[in-house]
Amino acid sequence: MNARLLIRLLLHCVLPLVIGFAIYYFFRPEVAVIRWTGHHTPLIPVSEMNDWQRLLVFSGPDFCWSYSLSAALFIWQKAQDRPLPYFTLFVFLIILLSELLQGWALPGFTLDWADLIAALSAFGLSWMFKAR
């Protein structure tokens, strides 16, 4: 693995996941992955947050996860000998479905418009970086 690829993986895939995890750890310890760590108390209760803080805390992790996944898939695609047809559409559908399923089919998850917009924005941003 060359240094450039490693940096891309760390910057575009690992870092967003770490940021998302940190948001969950410090502000939303009610999710399973944080429960496993034994941490239960948020730094600031949701009831004391303003609208922007809530947006960041609730939609930020979705943005980070969607960006990271899109980037990982685009990096994988770039490593292929020839471009795969409809791969960008494939990534888009995965991101879209991962959000929509939260509202329709997965108990314990929630979906709102802010989450959906955050996830699709993350996909768009990742797609823009892919072209560079």
Binding site: L17, Y24, E30, V31, A32, V33, R35, W36, H40, P61, W65, S68, L69, A72, L73, W76, A79, Q80, I94, S98, L106, G108, F109, T110
Partner: peptide, 24 residues
Amino acid sequence: RFLLLAFILFVYAFSFIATKRVEL
């Protein structure tokens, strides 16, 4: 390479499910 793709999707699916809300 396609195994790697499957592995990537599996890792992200796991991290997705791990953010399910669990009430104490």
